[in-house]
Design a protein around this nucleic acid. Structure first.
Lengths: 297, 297
DNA sequence: CGCTACCATAATTAAATCCTATGAATATCA
DNA sequence: TGATATTCATAGGATTTAATTATGGTAGCG
């Protein structure tokens, strides 16, 4: 046989009341039900917890020791339920967030401060790497969510757009004042791009109708900052997202041009496993992300 | 609804295996039974403990926190059962022992040393007072057992004889060498007795056919030691039990005579509430008492 | 000596839990 | 791509557990 919580609760009532009738009332059951459960508890333990006298009911020495242990367990059960009540809802306890390198430097400073302000208790872990890797780690359960360029087309992930950012052309400062170029003119310029693996590289290529397979002669950089420095050195031109302008063009002899006509854009969003119960809490995070990106309305 | 231990056990298994089928095997139940219990647990908590993916089952952050609490509780339940197993039997944990004053000084020194030797862990409390008070305190549950003169004729108490002790006559040393007296001669001697309340007084009176109601002129003492000193001072004679001879006659000018013919005796035994579950353990104590009294065979 | 208080036992009913069978979704492999 | 396997969820009937009401027994009390 087996000790049950029910038996512990009944025992506690009886140990307090020292009277079967009153203890049964306290438990909202009939007196025989209590008698049976107490006796079964004693049988299970093979131990007498109460000394039954015609007029007086008493705890035995072992009954008292048992009561202490039982009360500890029952209290912990209560605390377990309290914990469940207090922890449910959309509170974020731990957030393991992935983010692509072409957004991280511009978004993270604001994001982290907003996030810790809105959720003071949050345990935030940030992982910066390229999209395929983020996807893997999401799927593995190593990450809870990731900020990436949409769409991903992963059926197991839900995508929520956060903002759309415009691409701008970065040219050497010597060309300042030159007229805005159209998108299709880019193919004829020496366009500097990020290394393979970065989604931003692929996006830029597709904007400009560049053949992804054609070899390019040393025109790849490992970060947007590097690319801008290369532009400043007169090696070519590059594209950067709107958001990167302030940070990246401050320390290089370059100028920025918006495109003539419809500007190329990319959609940035947050993704997580569709099965992740944090979903609602992550959804609540979207306005905060927009605010951090300066795109809140 | 309510969290059950069963649910915690099933949860623990699933948290370890992260696979419904294997966890169910571990619990020796079918997989649907496990599914249902886990779901009901989550419903009760209103909290998702597991993230179910087609291929992979994972604990949520809250699931991990829950697991820690659940494991604590389950471990304490196990310990509770272990405790019950280890503590049952006839081990004496605490013994609250009453004893009458006409035995205490002669028996206790031996008894305590024997008892603590046989039960090193024992928590021994001794209460020395007269029989009616011991009975009250036994009935109240303030004492576990008492060493008294039998019989008591209390239906709620069980009596177990331990030894029978002989009464001896104490006379002034000046009468040393006098011939043994017979019991019925005592009525004509100035017999010193204990104060009222002591059973030994009543026993002595009944031996000598003294009318208990007849007033006695200042011939009462508060202890056997006092009585013997009074005898030494030539005030009268007294009776003491066998066991007291060594201790009490050492420091007084008295001599001891056994009676001619059948000596008066009293039966000393241990009593406890019939309902006291310690009964078997107390029964086991009898040989030890006999040994302490020097009556073991 | 009957009455009352109190706990135990018995028989029946209600509830909880389990098992088998089956369904649905996804991954795996030909 | 379609068939198969894996895995978890759901449903219905059976079983076990625990409750209720009714009843019995024993000790104190007037």
């Amino acid at each position: 046989m087996n000790i049950t919580l029910r038996q512990l609760r009944y025992f506690r009532a009886l140990a307090q009341e020292l009277h079967f009738g009153r203890a049964a009332d306290k438990c909202a059951i009939s007196q025989p039900a209590l008698s049976v459960q107490i006796r079964e508890l004693e049988d299970t333990l093979n131990l007498e917890l109460f000394e039954r006298q015609p007029r007086a009911l008493r705890l035995t020495l072992r009954g008292e020791e048992f009561a202490e242990r039982a009360n500890v367990i029952l209290r912990e059960m209560d605390e377990l339920e309290d914990w469940a009540t207090s922890t449910r809802g959309t509170t974020l306890g731990r957030l393991r967030l992935g983010i692509i390198p072409t957004i991280a430097p511009y978004l993270l400073p604001n994001l982290i401060s907003q996030l810790t302000q809105a959720h003071p208790q949050i345990d935030l872990h940030v992982r910066e790497t390229v999209t395929p890797r983020l996807i893997d780690e999401l799927m593995d359960g190593q990450l809870d969510a990731a900020i990436v360029a949409l769409p991903l087309d992963e059926p197991a992930l839900v995508e929520t757009p956060v903002f759309t950012e415009e691409m701008v052309l970065v040219r050497p400062k010597t060309e300042a004042g030159a007229p805005p170029v159209a998108l299709d003119e880019l193919a004829r310029m020496r366009l500097l791009l990020l290394e393979e693996g970065h989604c931003f590289r692929d996006q830029a290529m597709s904007f400009c109708n560049i053949n992804p397979n054609r070899p390019r002669g040393g025109l790849d950089g490992s970060s947007l900052g590097t690319l801008v420095q290369m532009v400043g050195a007169g090696i070519g031109v590059t594209l950067i997202p709107d958001m990167a302008i302030d940070v990246e063009t401050r320390s290089a002899p370059v100028c920025v041009n918006r495109f003539a006509g419809a500007a190329p854009t990319r959609s940035i969003g947050v993704v997580w496993r569709a099965t992740n119960p944090m979903g609602p809490a992550l959804q609540d995070l979207v306005p905060l992300l927009q605010q951090a990106a300066g795109y809140e309305d």
